[in-house]
């Protein structure tokens, strides 16, 4: 059996079309309140480019290709790790009134920001 994936012109266009449509529909449903995490989340998703970088670096046959491949993996890893870190941080902050993170009691209204910026 052959597991190598061969993608010819039109198959590629079909993949692009369906993926683009899926992205459009999925993102179109996201409420405006989540647009920043969504943006950094989709930013994280294109960090998958690091996989292409790893492939390219493993197949690097000259010093020049090794240097560029190193950059590709470095940048791709930065994209993925950074994108995940900030998205996760932001999403953890969204809480509803039913589950307030720090709910003010009647008498002692305490500051959320004890640390001064």
């Amino acid at each position: 059996m052959e597991f190598q994936i061969g993608i010819s012109g039109f198959i590629a266009l079909y993949i692009f079309m369906v993926a683009g449509f899926a992205g459009w529909v999925i993102i179109g449903r996201v409420p405006a309140i989540l647009h920043t995490p969504l943006m950094s989340g989709s930013n994280f998703v294109h960090g998958i480019v690091v996989v292409g970088g790893i492939y390219a670096l493993l197949n690097a046959a000259t010093l020049q290709q090794q240097i560029i491949g190193f950059c590709a993996v470095l940048f791709g890893a930065g994209n993925a790790a950074g994108g995940y870190a900030v998205t996760d941080r932001m999403l953890a902050m969204f809480k509803s009134s039913a589950h307030p993170p720090v709910h003010a009691k009647k008498t002692n209204v305490k500051s959320i920001h004890t640390k001064k910026h």
Binding site: A12, A19, G20, A22, G23, W24, M39, G52
Partner: peptide, 20 residues
């Protein structure tokens, strides 16, 4: 690179970015 995962992820983000 003949990698459909990159194609799909990239295009989904491309469409998402365009919509935003």
């Amino acid at each position: 690179l003949k990698n459909p995962a990159l194609m799909i992820a990239g295009m989904v983000v491309g469409a998402a970015g365009m919509l935003l």
